[in-house]
C-alpha cells in the first residue's frame, strides 16, 4: 500500500499544516510517512504546497510524482497540479475558489466550499484545512479518524483545540452528506 497526497493552495490557507497533520496521523497508525513542502518565495501569498507519501513500507523517495489524491484550494493550484493526478485518483477542491472544474481529469471529484463554511462557522477561513482533513478522512480512510484527531490536537495551539476538532467533525459530516 502506498498513497501519495498533495495539498495545494495559497499561502495562509494552512495547506502545509494539513500535510503535516496527515503525515503525523499515519505515523500514529504505525505506518510510514514522509511530508515535504514547497518552501521559499512561492510559499508567501502565492502557491503553497505540501506533500505526504504514506506507505506500509519505508518511504524512500520523499516527493510526490503521480498523486493519488489532490486537495486544491485555489484555481492556480488546481491548474498547476491536476496533470500529476493519477487517472483513477481523487480530486477534492474548494468550490468557493475554483470556478472551472478540470476537463481533462476523468477521476472522482469532490467539490465543496470549504473556506466559505469555515468563515461562516468559525469566523475564519483558516479552519478550511482541518475541515478538509475531516472530509478526507471520511471519504478515503487513509488513516484512522482517531489518529487524525490526535494529530490535530498535537499540531494546533491548545487554545484553538476545540474549534479545530469541531472543524474536523464538520468535515466528516459534509462528506457523509455528500456521499448521501
Amino acid at each position: 500500500m502506498k498513497v501519495e497526497v498533495r495539498f495545494a493552495g495559497l499561502g495562509g490557507q494552512g495547506m502545509v499544516l494539513a500535510g503535516q497533520i496527515l503525515g503525523k496521523a499515519a505515523v500514529f497508525d504505525g505506518l510510514f510517512a514522509v511530508q515535504t513542502q514547497s518552501y521559499g518565495a512561492e510559499a508567501r501569498g502565492s502557491a503553497a504546497k505540501s506533500e505526504v507519501v504514506i506507505s506500509d513500507k519505508k518511504v524512500w523517495f520523499p516527493f510526490v510524482r503521480k498523486c493519488d489524491v489532490l486537495i486544491a484550494l485555489s484555481q492556480q493550484a488546481l491548474n498547476k497540479y491536476v496533470e500529476d493526478l493519477k487517472e483513477n485518483g481523487v480530486l477534492i477542491m474548494d468550490s468557493g475558489y475554483i470556478k472551472e472544474a478540470p476537463r481533462s481529469f476523468k477521476g472522482k471529484i469532490y467539490s465543496f466550499s470549504f473556506s466559505k463554511i469555515a468563515k461562516e462557522k468559525f469566523g475564519n477561513e483558516i479552519f478550511a484545512n482541518v475541515i478538509v482533513l475531516g472530509f478526507l478522512s471520511e471519504i478515503l480512510h487513509l488513516v484512522s479518524e482517531e489518529s487524525l484527531k490526535k494529530a490535530v490536537i498535537d499540531s494546533v495551539p491548545s487554545k484553538y483545540e476545540r474549534e479545530n476538532l469541531e472543524a474536523f467533525d464538520l468535515g466528516v459530516e459534509i462528506a457523509k452528506r455528500l456521499k448521501g
Binding site: Q20, G23, K24, V27, F32, A33, V34, Q35, T36, Q37, Y39, V59, P62
Partner: peptide
C-alpha cells in the same frame, strides 16, 4: 541538506 532538513518523518 535542505531536503532532509525540511522533510518530516518518523
Amino acid at each position: 541538506d535542505e531536503i532532509v532538513a525540511h522533510m518530516r518523518e518518523k
